[in-house]
Design a protein around this nucleic acid. Structure first.
Lengths: 244, 244
DNA sequence: TGGTAGCCGAATGTATACACTGACGCGTAG
DNA sequence: CTACGCGTCAGTGTATACATTCGGCTACCA
């Protein structure tokens, strides 16, 4: 990986540790040993501890009073709250974008992006899943910026990074769900509606739509959870979910 | 300071650095020298850098691409956005509390707290300002917990810690405003209404009230800004505000 | 005289060494 | 046999030492 050279040790530790925790390498609630982890990630303890601070603020780890960190565990309520929060924050971004207005060019960009998603999911019968995931993430990024506020953009990014509430969380693996394509179509319909509302300066509608849009994540999660227990070890983050 | 013994070096650095920055010791946009700061705060560079990470995530500092941190600067839009965000988050806490319901005991506690505030501001003619500030903070803490979600509570705490959007930000110094007491009375009226709405399970109303309640901070800030430029050096955080 | 290249210094990012606290185990006494 | 106390040690929190990079200054050339 050539771009590893430009990656600082802290980023390396953040990405590596996040990947390890999400993959279920450590049981939920287990304490993370710093020295062993540092060696495993190929960094020293200093950047590793910075990475741990970061993951604590993301909610993926919890600090232990007596020292150190443990892997967080989530129940259904936690996930629903995180999804609710994302809906609220993205809803605010959409509302502010509508109220404050955005350049026609930005609207056009968003429409272009949505057109590409339309193509992707209305193909013959095989959906380019990775493409959808990538474009979906980009759409939510665009939404974050449309309010024209750095603070709002940062906050949207934050809640979208939440391991169990990101727009693409639990999207991989959905292939097994029968009407999974219908779910994508529905989500995409909401994307269009949100952009419409922003363009029409309908703040309340944009906010409500974005909130409801986040709710799809609940369905996705429940489907996946009920589908097959064996998936828990294959879907990133699913191993951190406790049985209510 | 007896409890300084139990305070970790990182907390010491966080509190000290936050105080230094808020006091206007450093100009907005100026780079923070680590070695000098560490010596001044009586800690080593390691906990100081952790504190800087924390203040970056709080928005008080900004990371510089080439390395190090600088003091953030805020214009009116930044402050309005931060206040808006707090209103949205606190509004969500209020709405969820109403929708999910809270124990009668908690409602009673909140009422008791509000009664103490009522006493404080309806006294003869002198208002116990520090008392109001403290009880106001406690009320917002209680609100954060009422949703019954750790995630929501943490997020409310986060946005309330934002230097320029906290419920008590720019409250000190308001004594000079003629109808400042009227402003407190109005805020207190909203406190009561929020609790009423939560008790009555009126989620939408609770949310709207909490949002509007945050808007009072805008007025407070504008009053203070227009009042007397000399105050800038005495009100914590005001020195970080640029002239639009 | 202005601009550029190269070097030097300072300050950050990282690694490592040290200190101290909390936990586990072993031994002894009741 | 159990319970309490002490000692050891693993592991975190903190300090310091090292390396690397960025910025600034000077000197030289056009």
């Amino acid at each position: 990986m050539g771009e590893n050279d430009r990656m600082t040790q802290v980023e390396k530790a953040i990405i590596g540790l996040r990947g390890l925790v999400m993959s279920g390498e450590f049981d939920a609630g287990s304490r993370l040993p710093e020295v062993a982890l540092a060696e495993r990630l190929g960094v020293s303890r200093t950047p590793l501890r910075q990475a741990m601070d970061r993951l604590v603020s993301e909610g993926l780890l919890e600090r232990i009073e007596s020292g150190g960190c443990r892997v967080a565990s989530f129940d259904l309520d936690d996930i629903n709250d995180a999804i609710e929060l994302r809906g609220v924050i993205e809803g605010t971004a959409a509302r502010l974008a509508a109220e404050r207005g955005v350049d026609a060019e930005v609207i056009a960009d968003a429409r272009g992006l949505l057109a590409r998603i339309d193509e992707g999911i209305s193909g013959p019968n095989s959906v380019d899943f990775d493409l959808y995931v990538r474009l979906n993430a980009r759409f939510h990024d665009m939404l974050a910026q449309m309010a024209g506020s750095d603070l709002i953009r940062r906050e949207v990014d934050r809640v979208c990074r939440h391991p169990l509430a990101s727009p693409n969380a639990f999207l991989r693996g959905q292939e097994i769900i029968p009407d999974f394509l219908a779910s994508l179509v529905r989500a995409q319909g909401q994307h269009h509606a949100i952009v419409d509302a922003i363009e029409a300066r309908e703040g309340a509608r944009a906010e409500a739509l974005a909130r409801e849009h986040a709710r799809l994540a609940r369905r996705n999660f429940r489907f996946l959870r009920d589908a097959d227990p064996r998936l828990a070890t294959r879907i990133p983050g699913l191993s951190l979910v406790t049985a209510q």
